[in-house]
Design a protein around this nucleic acid. Structure first.
Lengths: 151, 151
DNA sequence: TATTGTTATACTCTATAACTATA
DNA sequence: TATAGTTATAGAGTATAACAATA
């Protein structure tokens, strides 16, 4: 059997995270895409819908649906934009904030657990390596997008 | 700003890969889930549909839809199972094999590129670290599934 | 004119439940 | 009885296109 390449390892881990995420909110009104909205609001504060669309890299139509669902279940509210009467600003409710705070807490714990699993002598190299890989992936995606746009 | 944690880095990379995958086959009859079927057939040879369902961790109903689409576009064929007349074995066509071989080639190239981006002194530690993290994530998921089943 | 968000429509991925044919 | 795959139905996530209100 061929040994696992670096890409194999990374894709495997990405798939595990994705699978885990998809099950996390099973049976609740939440889902990975909806939590993505909450997570952005948690980190950046109230945002207009088009800002969410840009941040999540989806169409504005999509945001309408996600915010509809989140608002219906009480996690966010739409408030008028202070200066632009076309726009609607999305804000976390206390219930939404409870979700993001719980998620943040769980992330911190998981990060701790994962770090402890790595040999202390390997930790710095692991972080450096991941950063190098991430930077390269970003470059490749930017190039692909540029050439795609050109065609 | 808080520095990126190990989990932050891993989730970021996972998201980039996911985003890239989703665009890869944009405008073609392929898609991540369909390529997942082709990929399994590439690595394991012809498979019955229930084997695909187990491998991809989705319902048999889902496999019906994916194989329908792949068959309609000429990437796979359904052939009778040699001994079980209930089952249908899914096989790659030459056209399907062309896709998986192209994907394998692209993976090999990308893996090479990513490896070159990492400081040679960090490469072994990166692989060890990723394996440790992957093993831990798997343990946690298995535990979560076991306790979910119990409840 | 351009932007913001919506309605209308469609496609993919996924799930559960009921059913047929076979084991 | 149990398994393999299908039909029926439903819901989430995504996209494009046309439109109203506002900038």
């Amino acid at each position: 059997m061929a040994p696992l390449t670096l890409l194999d390892r990374l894709l495997l881990l990405a798939e595990l995270f994705q699978r885990d995420m998809a099950r996390e909110y099973d049976g609740t009104p939440l889902s990975p895409a909806r939590v993505g909205v909450l997570w952005n609001l948690h980190h950046r504060g109230p945002l207009a819908q088009h800002e969410l669309a840009t941040a999540l890299d989806v169409t504005p139509r999509n945001i309408t649906g996600l915010v509809d669902a989140l608002e219906q279940h009480g996690y966010v509210v739409r408030v008028p934009h202070p200066t632009d009467r076309r726009a609607r600003v999305v804000e976390l409710t206390p219930s939404g904030r409870a979700v993001t705070e719980r998620t943040a807490r769980e992330h911190a714990e998981l990060s701790e657990t994962l770090l402890l699993a790595v040999d202390p002598a390997d930790r710095a190299a692991l972080e450096r390596g991941l950063d190098a890989v991430t930077a390269t992936v970003r470059e490749l995606m930017a190039e692909a997008e540029a050439s795609g746009r050109a065609s």
